[in-house]
Nucleic acid binder design. Structure first.
Lengths: 332, 332
DNA sequence: AACAGCATTGTTAACGTGTGCATTTCTATG
DNA sequence: CATAGAAATGCACACGTTAACAATGCTGTT
């Protein structure tokens, strides 16, 4: 049996209420008594029972960090940065619960009682129902990474479209006119935003590309490899390829070198995300930095503040993306 | 206010006890009443209050997945595979709580009341005190990845030493005699095991290498880059380099190509871990597969079984590592 | 001296659930 | 028909904590 406030009360010769107040630093308690009780609690190695506290206070001390899925489409680096960002700012008293939304058979267990707040790292509209569910249950909620329109939430997203635009424009500035794109996973919002940025830049510079320059992928290494293989078979091979994330860029580079060609001499390759390994690929990858860790940190801070103060403006905040120029794009 | 069993009881015209029993499938309850109550509960959208249940049952439904640290030395792929493995097997009713041990100022909140069980993904002896603490508090505990001797726990570890041995022997078989090693983070158990395997293989084949062939790293990309740079400056440059993980191997390859040299023509490189990206590097990396996901899955299963049945043998189980031959090592 | 008012502590109930024991109802048996 | 025994349900309390309200003692003011 572990020690409770009643045990402490007995030893201190006071009521358990007094103990509770003392340990919670209530101003009602005589400073001397308070110190005495705290000392006793310390020496007895007391730790509060969070279940009991939760029951009466109606707080769980649980924070949820939910990903659209943990199975496919979520890269290791993405998960890593998100967890790191959130973990850095939450206080000792909170539990960080990590879960894939598609792991839930029913959302039953997700409610105000079980979660003080939820961070959704949303990658696709497939989690829309989850977001609406949480919003409907009035669980403090912040959605990261994907703009959500249907409900009002705190919403932090990287400006993918502008990033893709800047990158594509850079390719144009380097003299490329035959620019292909290897797209992300179908249904993911980021897939669309990046394609839009790419298109916008091409259009702005009056460039048109054949249908065959749009190749689909799903954000993983293999799909990048397969997509690039297709592109290399084309009669009018592109001179540059925009891969919608770094993982696919890595796979794409592999496909190029396998054929005895090289990047960027024979074909230029650019990525998106700026993963940890991207600077260390050969050649170092030109890409767009997406500040996932900062975003997660900001999201967690906002959520905590909301839980405490109970109010906050619910609006979309765009996070700046940044072109990172390295060695995988040649000027022609 | 959310609906409780008392609300259901009122509507069903029974006592809350009966409702509780019905929802828990107690054999005491008349099957018809049971169905009726379940129907009502469903229609009222009832969800149990876990805090209340925890309080009386003395179970938290929380499982902890603790890493030595989340800041440095834990690669993204490692975190990813571990979470995926554990997440795959735990049931819907459990919460998976992810934390870095070094994030705790005190272990106060870690106790039987708050955690039904704990999985420690241990990377260094620095978390020894945590493991002993948890073991002392009699929290169901399984330690993965690092053998722990001081206390009896369920312990699953990859056979790093044998993996390093096999890999090094392979290098020897390919004709290499000048084999260097880029070591992992100081203090990590894996660092030592891999070095030992390397040494054992060299010794077995009667090979001695200069002191300078031992270069320290810390498991991250930059350190691999720096270490390889040092090696390349040596007058008697090695013909092959064993990097103690894939991240460092990537950094090392980068250092080679930067100097206008190439892998494996000018120097062979091998890694350890078999990360997702390793097959897609150029050249594809020869490495050792360490089954982190399987290990995590097995660990989680074992832990759950222990929580249910309350007994289990506490011993070290070695998980097989496997040599993965690709293109980064040349036969000379 | 009486009393207002403050500081400090205690009494009691509440949060939602599970369970030992008592109670009621029903069935079968002699 | 009486009754033993099984089946089904209810009563009351427990889990550990917080908080509204009550109670006590003390100080200073009139």
């Amino acid at each position: 049996m572990s020690v409770t406030i009643k045990d402490i009360a007995k030893l201190a010769g006071v009521s358990h209420t007094t103990v509770s107040r003392a340990l919670n630093d209530s101003p009602l308690i005589n400073p001397e008594t308070k110190e005495r009780i705290k000392a006793i609690a310390g020496s007895m190695n007391y730790t509060p029972n969070y279940s009991a506290r939760s029951l009466v206070l109606d707080r769980s001390y649980n924070l949820g960090l939910f990903f659209t899925t943990l199975h496919t489409g979520t890269s290791a680096g993405f998960l890593y940065e998100a967890i790191k960002g959130v973990n850095d700012v939450i206080k000792d008293e909170y539990n960080l619960i990590v879960r894939g939304i598609d792991d839930y058979k029913s959302f039953h267990k997700v409610n105000r009682k079980n979660f003080d707040g939820i961070i959704v790292m949303s990658q696709s509209e497939s989690d829309q129902s989850f977001i609406e569910y949480a919003s409907d249950k009035e669980i403090p909620l912040v959605v990261l990474n994907r703009p959500v329109e249907s409900v009002q939430v705190m919403n932090f997203v990287p400006d993918d479209q502008s990033g893709a635009y800047t990158l594509t424009e850079y390719l144009v500035q380097q003299g490329h006119r035959h620019i292909a794109i290897i797209e992300g996973k179908q249904g993911f919002k980021s897939t669309q935003a990046r394609r839009d940025g790419y298109r916008e830049a091409l259009h702005k510079h009056g460039i048109t590309v054949p249908e065959a320059y749009y190749v689909s992928g799903n954000y993983d290494l293999e799909s990048g490899h397969a997509a690039m293989s297709k592109l290399l078979e084309l009669p009018d091979r592109p001179t540059a390829v925009f891969c919608c994330n770094d993982d696919m860029a890595l796979g794409a580079v592999k496909a190029v070198t396998e054929r005895g060609l090289s990047v960027p001499e024979d074909i230029s390759v650019a990525g998106f995300d700026d993963h940890l390994f991207s600077a260390f690929m050969s050649p170092a990858l030109t890409t767009v930095r997406r500040p996932i860790e900062e975003l997660s940190r900001a999201g967690a801070e906002k959520l905590l503040k909301f839980i405490e103060t109970k109010h906050s403006e619910k609006s979309v905040v765009l996070f700046h993306t940044e072109l990172v120029i390295r060695d995988s794009v040649k000027s022609i």
